[in-house]
Nucleic acid binder design. Sequence first.
DNA 1: TCAATACTTGTCTATTTAGTCAACTTTTCA
DNA 2: TGAAAAGTTGACTAAATAGACAAGTATTGA
Lengths: 216, 216
Amino acid sequence: MAHPMTTNISRGPYKPGRIREQSRDLILQAAEAEFACHGFRGATMQRIAESAQVPKANIHYYFSNKLGLYGAVLENTLNLWDTVFNELSSHDEPADVLSRYIDAKIDFSRTHPTASRLFAKEMISGAPHLSAYLQQDYRLWFKQRMSIFESWIAQGKMDDLDPAHVIFMIWASTQYYADFEPQILIATQTQHLTEPAFVAAADSIKHIILKGCGIC
Amino acid sequence: MAHPMTTNISRGPYKPGRIREQSRDLILQAAEAEFACHGFRGATMQRIAESAQVPKANIHYYFSNKLGLYGAVLENTLNLWDTVFNELSSHDEPADVLSRYIDAKIDFSRTHPTASRLFAKEMISGAPHLSAYLQQDYRLWFKQRMSIFESWIAQGKMDDLDPAHVIFMIWASTQYYADFEPQILIATQTQHLTEPAFVAAADSIKHIILKGCGIC
DNA sequence: TCAATACTTGTCTATTTAGTCAACTTTTCA
DNA sequence: TGAAAAGTTGACTAAATAGACAAGTATTGA
């Protein structure tokens, strides 16, 4: 009732400010972890607020609602994904291209496990919030890689396999080390996955994929 | 207040009844789908009730609470898992054993996708409700398979690879076709995965795994 | 047939949840 | 320095949620 909005004497506007970005990032990070662990429905704004150590109302200052926050988290993660994988694609030998790609994917699983889990949860739920992205950038990317594989096959550089299944196999194998970490930890009787363990995983995957596809 | 529990003249007991099993199964099936799609926290008793077309109170007659229902669903799925995969294990040639195993896994992904997704969700969430199982049966199974691979390597029947990574790769590749169905559908521009598609996937995986491991 | 038991369900409650709001503090810049 | 804008937050509300309960109905076997 006593909000100082009566006088209109403009003394000077305001600059965008970088507090905004700081707080937003803090909330986004906490939200990513919560959504990755419990999914969209299972996550609660209260838990995200506690995890980010801000009052719940502050989240609503930066994000319209729960769906808006989730969308921002997904967008954030998609950008990260693009940044990491766009550099890969060349006219080099199949062995080099696939080796680098597998290394990059395993490294992504190691350095960004929650991002990987977030996508996995979305996919398992039927990808209700990713359809737009999947129909655009993703399909383009997929078609391009498919044609690369097909040219390799035509040149006799690899076995005559359906490229789609090869790509799925690489994705599945590399993401497994982020998404199914608990299963791996119990199977290997270790407390946490170390960097050498990821390197060993990448080496095994590269060995099997390259040899298995007849690339040598 | 007027519940007929006053007179104690026993005229005859009651037989277990098979209505129990019918209703329980109906609820368990609806619950499996709901938990697989939205996780433990994200699933609601109301939605499960609507999906099973029974009043919510009926669920509480058969299951103590939400956690009890979830536990029953997990137990149900674990039994199914055991039934399907326990037959596999022999002293045959590696190529036969692995081929049959990959076929069985892909077939499980095709015929029981929700079971696969339920486990995937649990794993991604950190497997908070599966620790007991994972520590017992699962670890035993894993150790046994590991030693089989090791004997093959010792006999020069396959390349010198860490068996753990080979097993992970088989699991990842085969479960992918159940867990990440939306991604596959969009990539391959199809409406739903047909049985021939699963067979083709199994063939590709068998080709790459067997050749990649030096089993021929 | 009938009483004991199994099963069903509408209604209620306490708690949790997403989201609002107005009062408040901090930051900016002229 | 001070006023305007940006940012913060405790208290509130309406809806959804898990679960309890009592009053029913259906099924069984003697």
